[in-house]
Design a protein around this nucleic acid. Structure first.
Lengths: 225, 225
DNA sequence: GATTATATTTAGTCTAGCCTAAATTTCATA
DNA sequence: TATGAAATTTAGGCTAGACTAAATATAATC
């Protein structure tokens, strides 16, 4: 497959992948914010990515950018690295939940295919990382995510937590302390329309929790009854 | 300690450490050869390393270079990373002997202190990597190596293999196939002064081996009787 | 439809690290 | 001690990837 891609290029492709998954196209400004660089730098890199052979992105001025098949492959490869690494760090090296992301962000660019294959084998070809995000398979397919934000549930709903946003370590600590981790069942008891608070019951806990939308927007659930 | 050091700088410091261990000082040309860059590039980098605050190397024009205390610390830190990684890859991920070096060379620059500490713990704070090289301790001290090249032994000498050069994967395969790995006992049966061949008996093997100096210069032994 | 605000691109700089080629210094030896 | 070989440094360029500031295009509002 493609080699000699720089870390910067890999980071751009990953960011484009994630933004297009949400908005259909990735805008210059959104990319700049996500990658923590200035918009002018993004324009330059996008131009370059669209002029490689084969091109990694498709690009029309002022219209944002999408990945080509080739670019998507690279992005998924890196995402596979990242999520396998997160799980490996958590399960095999005892990393706490909130610390795996940064380490994986650096390692994902340098591990070989051999390394990838070996940790995948040790982990038993897992399907999800510690935050519940699906891990692309070896042939780089990614099952579409069906989960919905916890914030959309209403009193009486029962559901299973499937994944949580992994970008904010503080949020992850908060969630872990309260037992809000993947595969846990919850029941919604109350909804307050003014402040968007949800009162929920977490399986196996006696106390209930009141969560604002800053939290419930970052937690995704499935199997709602 | 020092942060924001580039991979290139870390590679230079590691190379200087290894060359000074042999020659007292590291020359521009030797560094260029070891790092696979041109001598002109080395001059530029050395200048830069001697002008950091605090300086990482001590430098007099045309006289070669040595590490400062600060530079040595960085070098030992990277060497510790490298050797811990080699052992981890070998023991925990089942990497063959000859493949750990390249992977470790890339990973050594990106792992965190946390990662270092966790793999060291999993491995039980080991003292040697798979090739027998000593691993710098957490406080960055490295026991002086006392082993001598196998090529210096003569008939009748009995010794224990302590380490082998790890830079050439083909040599490593060759050595492994013949059971020439650390902690193995050997006896020298014959020496041929014309071609520098040694005939040796490896503990637990029935056949003897005839080895040229291209091999015996790369294998180091200890406990000669 | 004109005007303002926002998003994006262009143009010109900067730093890190490498390169080549030419100039210089040191070293070995006649 | 002079001279040629080897080692080293200097000078000038290149690429990747960032930055700033100015120019332009799109979108939003009156």
């Amino acid at each position: 497959m493609r080699e000699n891609l720089t870390h910067a290029i890999e980071d751009y492709l990953k960011a484009i992948y994630k933004l297009t998954a949400i908005h259909g196209r990735a805008s210059t400004n959104d990319l700049a914010e996500r990658l923590d660089v200035k918009p002018g730098s993004v324009s330059g890199m996008i131009k370059k990515l669209s002029e490689t052979d084969p091109p990694l992105v498709e690009y029309e001025k002022h219209q944002g950018v999408i990945l080509t098949t080739e670019g998507e492959k690279v992005a998924l490869e890196i995402i596979r690295h990242h999520r396998l690494l997160e799980l490996y760090l958590h399960q095999m090296l005892g990393y706490p939940w909130d610390k795996v992301h940064d380490e994986a962000d650096r390692l994902e660019h340098v591990i070989s295919e051999e390394f990838e294959a070996r940790i995948a084998a040790v982990l038993g070809d897992p399907l999800h990382d510690p935050h519940g995000d699906p891990i692309p398979t070896v042939d780089l397919t990614l099952p579409p995510s069906t989960s919905t934000p916890l914030s959309q549930l209403r009193p009486g709903d029962r559901a299973t937590i499937r994944r949580v946003r992994d970008s904010d370590p503080e949020l992850l600590c908060y969630l872990e302390e309260r037992g809000l981790i993947p595969q846990i069942h919850i029941t919604v008891l109350e909804y307050s329309p003014f402040d968007d608070n949800l009162t929920i019951q977490v399986e196996g806990q006696t106390d209930t929790l009141v969560l604002g939308s800053r939290v419930t927007d970052q937690v995704f659930v499935d199997g709602i009854e």
